[in-house]
Amino acid sequence: MKKAIFITLFLAMAAGTVPAGAQSRAELALKVERLEREMIALENRLRGGQANTSAVPMQGGADNAALADMVAKMGTMERQMRMFTGKIEELEHRLRQQDQAMEMLRKELDLQRQEAAQAQASRPQQSMNTNAPAGNTAAANNNAGAPAAETPAATTPAKPAIELPAGDAAEQYRYAFEFIRQNDLDSGFTAMEMFLKANPGDERVGSAKFWLGRIHLLKGRMPQAAQQLLALIEEHPNHEKRVDALVDLADVLIALDSAPDACNALAEFRRSEAKANDRLKARAARTAEKAGCS
């Protein structure tokens, strides 16, 4: 019964729209059940034909042809179902990226509101009676009836400039990574680039390239993401993040309409998957299915 319902839904998707009424769904279900009964009947006739081939000499060939035709149609339907499944997963991936972008935007707006509130609270409360110099008391009294001068509106303070600390490479990397940990991807990207330029020979360079590639991926900058991830994969073959970078690269290549290259990246991942956790292995399997890898 589940198979009949699933095939019914697939037929509706292939036609372009899902049936609106229960009567249409019932008709499709009946057609699918009729096809299944016909296949079963054909198989029974084939088995009977093998037992008594002399009675109906031409029946077995016709049944074989009909059965082969049905199998071919079912194969076509399965391929179309895989195609629809891939498209649905691609849409889900894009929705996840949009959700991440919206979450980052929400956090950025919250931070700006907090900074504005802090600036408003720290603005000094001016009072002519307590702050005016003693020699100006008379002038203050003379101007008591005059309208107070407008106080300039407080402006939101600009975010502090990104500047690596003066410590060693480990401290500078921690400084850059802290932005990423707090989901401030723009500041984290800038700090990681500065770390790379300041410490080109440090052991953390591979990690910096990975995070630069991941930020490019989250921001939708696929060519730049591919460049950074490839740099990690090729230049740091023993890096702990290399298996993650291979799966990320496969996602990037799918987005760039290069599914065969994505399958090559996943094949390289399978050669190193002993270093991957179960979550990453499951993600790699989904990506391989999306790319149509054999």
Score class of each variant (00 low, 15 high):
residue 1 M to K: 05
residue 1 M to N: 08
residue 3 K to V: 06
residue 3 K to I: 06
residue 7 I to H: 06
residue 10 F to L: 11
residue 10 F to P: 00
residue 13 M to A: 13
residue 18 V to S: 03
residue 18 V to P: 00
residue 19 P to C: 00
residue 19 P to E: 00
residue 32 V to W: 00
residue 33 E to G: 07
residue 33 E to A: 12
residue 35 L to K: 08
residue 36 E to R: 12
residue 37 R to E: 09
residue 37 R to S: 09
residue 38 E to T: 10
residue 38 E to N: 07
residue 40 I to Y: 01
residue 42 L to Y: 01
residue 43 E to S: 06
residue 43 E to T: 07
residue 45 R to E: 11
residue 51 A to V: 06
residue 53 T to Y: 03
residue 54 S to E: 08
residue 57 P to W: 02
residue 57 P to R: 11
residue 60 G to F: 04
residue 61 G to Q: 10
residue 65 A to H: 03
residue 71 V to G: 04
residue 72 A to Q: 09
residue 73 K to F: 08
residue 77 M to F: 11
residue 79 R to Y: 02
residue 82 R to T: 09
residue 83 M to T: 14
residue 84 F to T: 02
residue 85 T to F: 10
residue 87 K to R: 14
residue 92 E to P: 00
residue 99 D to K: 10
residue 102 M to F: 10
residue 103 E to T: 14
residue 109 L to T: 07
residue 110 D to T: 10
residue 110 D to S: 15
residue 110 D to V: 07
residue 112 Q to I: 14
residue 112 Q to C: 07
residue 113 R to I: 13
residue 113 R to W: 05
residue 113 R to M: 13
residue 114 Q to S: 14
residue 114 Q to T: 13
residue 117 A to H: 10
residue 118 Q to M: 12
residue 118 Q to L: 12
residue 119 A to C: 09
residue 120 Q to H: 09
residue 121 A to K: 14
residue 123 R to W: 08
residue 126 Q to H: 09
residue 126 Q to D: 07
residue 131 N to Q: 15
residue 132 A to E: 10
residue 132 A to C: 13
residue 132 A to Y: 04
residue 133 P to K: 06
residue 134 A to E: 13
residue 136 N to E: 12
residue 140 A to L: 13
residue 144 A to D: 08
residue 147 P to V: 11
residue 148 A to S: 11
residue 149 A to D: 07
residue 149 A to P: 03
residue 151 T to C: 04
residue 152 P to A: 10
residue 152 P to W: 02
residue 156 T to M: 11
residue 156 T to A: 05
residue 157 P to K: 01
residue 159 K to P: 08
residue 159 K to F: 06
residue 160 P to C: 01
residue 161 A to D: 11
residue 167 G to W: 03
residue 168 D to Q: 05
residue 170 A to C: 02
residue 173 Y to R: 10
residue 180 I to F: 06
residue 182 Q to W: 01
residue 185 L to S: 01
residue 188 G to D: 00
residue 192 M to H: 10
residue 192 M to G: 03
residue 193 E to M: 11
residue 194 M to Q: 15
residue 198 A to D: 09
residue 201 G to N: 15
residue 201 G to I: 02
residue 203 E to P: 04
residue 207 S to W: 01
residue 208 A to M: 05
residue 208 A to E: 02
residue 209 K to C: 05
residue 210 F to Q: 00
residue 210 F to T: 00
residue 210 F to M: 05
residue 213 G to C: 05
residue 214 R to V: 02
residue 214 R to S: 07
residue 214 R to G: 00
residue 215 I to K: 00
residue 218 L to A: 12
residue 229 L to C: 07
residue 230 L to Y: 05
residue 230 L to I: 09
residue 231 A to G: 13
residue 232 L to G: 08
residue 233 I to G: 04
residue 242 R to P: 03
residue 246 L to T: 05
residue 247 V to R: 01
residue 247 V to Q: 03
residue 249 L to E: 01
residue 251 D to M: 14
residue 251 D to C: 09
residue 255 A to Y: 04
residue 256 L to I: 06
residue 259 A to E: 15
residue 261 D to P: 03
residue 268 E to I: 11
residue 268 E to G: 11
residue 271 R to G: 15
residue 272 S to G: 13
residue 273 E to Y: 02
residue 274 A to Y: 03
residue 275 K to M: 13
residue 278 D to G: 07
residue 282 A to D: 13
residue 285 A to T: 13
residue 286 R to A: 15
residue 286 R to E: 14
residue 291 A to C: 08
residue 291 A to D: 04
residue 291 A to K: 02
residue 291 A to P: 04
